[in-house]
Amino acid sequence: MSRQLSSVAQRAPREWRGSSHNVDYSCLHQLAPYIGKLKPVIARELLGQFTSSGDIVLDCFSGSGTIPLEAVMLGRRTLAFDTNPYAITLTRAKLEAPPTLEAANEQLAQRLLDSQRRPRCDQRTIPLWVRKFFHPKTLQNAVRFADECIEKDDPFLLACLLSILHHQRPGFLSYPSSHLVPYLRDRKFPRVEYPEMYTERELAPRLAAKLARTYKHGAKVNRSKVLQIAQVGVADLKLDFEVDAIVTSPPYMNALDYVRDNRLRMWFLDRSTVDYSPEPTERQMQSDAITAAFASNALRYLRKGGHCVLVVGETVLRKRVKTHPAERMLARLTAEYPKLRVEHVIRDKIPDVRRSRRTEGATKRELVLVLKKG
């Protein structure tokens, strides 16, 4: 970390280390897995400290929708954008959830009925790497349900489906596999010894159980606070007004594989998804282009005196490449806006394996850069 940042850095509050499962709307926050998602308690603390009630808060890398959901809960108005279709599906699902469990179950019943009326798909057109996760009948029903949700523009039930796609537990749809990142666990659970784990898994009862878990503590969202959610990259962002604050977590350069790690869920959203594809932030030049677009485009919508709060990796060591994304990003932003002032730097340790690799790669610490536009 550079002298400029280390001289003003402070440790993250102790409460950031606690569990997020007891906060309000925790079940909505846990709607579906997402690699590298921000803890709700961190988003809430940052929004509470650097924004005010009624403020318009922009998150142009919304990911799983943690920041937009917390912003609405705190009485802010929110704008959420991302290029990843899974990210936007999750963000919309959380902010457009039906107000009650009864309403959600009615919606589910209709979607299930309509999906069964859809023509059967030719499973020979489905890639082998997708087919190997599911019993053929389970896959047939899941694909038709996904297509029905996509056609009816129902991100909430679509996200519920994606959340139970793969795991070894009985409440999920796949053969035994890992939960966050899809890998078959057929060596640990051989078909000969565990034949019950390779039978057809019915869709309806598992989706109903998912809804019951989601609404366990209530899930009513004030939709009037949601100004816009769209699958838009930061370079193409266009607004007709200024925002009071930008609170976001840009993708860390060379740190996480958002498409690969979500590839099975991504395939249900976009059938052109392949088993592996490179990330746009895998190379320094591409990562710098995203930062440059943020500097030249997103920051121009921030009002004078407004805060820009960025959650960025401190140091990334992966694939034999060591980078310092926080320093590099700050240098580019201040070059574009010389009057952009660093107000606070908060340093936080990341013990969660979902945000860093077991091999000690990726990033183990992140910095929260709090900037003010002069």
Rank of each mutant, 00 (worst) to 15 (best):
M1R: 10
V8S: 03
W16G: 04
W16K: 01
G18T: 04
G18S: 10
V23T: 11
L28N: 01
L31R: 01
L31G: 01
Y34W: 15
R44C: 08
G48Y: 03
Q49V: 10
T51P: 02
F61C: 09
F61N: 07
P68S: 06
M73N: 14
M73F: 12
D82T: 01
P98C: 01
P99T: 06
P99H: 08
T100W: 02
T100K: 03
P119A: 10
R131W: 05
F134T: 02
R144V: 03
F145S: 07
E151K: 15
E151F: 13
K152M: 13
C160G: 03
I164H: 02
H167I: 00
P170D: 13
L173G: 01
P176V: 04
S177P: 02
L180K: 10
L184A: 00
P195N: 03
L203N: 05
R206E: 03
L207R: 02
A212Y: 09
A212H: 13
R213I: 07
V234E: 08
V234I: 08
V243K: 09
V247C: 09
P250T: 03
D257Y: 12
V259W: 12
R263T: 00
V274T: 15
P278F: 07
P278S: 08
E282N: 08
R283W: 09
A298E: 07
L310E: 08
G313T: 06
K322Y: 08
T323F: 09
P325H: 02
R328E: 14
R328K: 11
L330F: 11
T334S: 11
A335L: 11
P338S: 09
K339I: 04
V342D: 04
E343L: 10
P351I: 04
R358G: 15
G361M: 09
L371W: 06
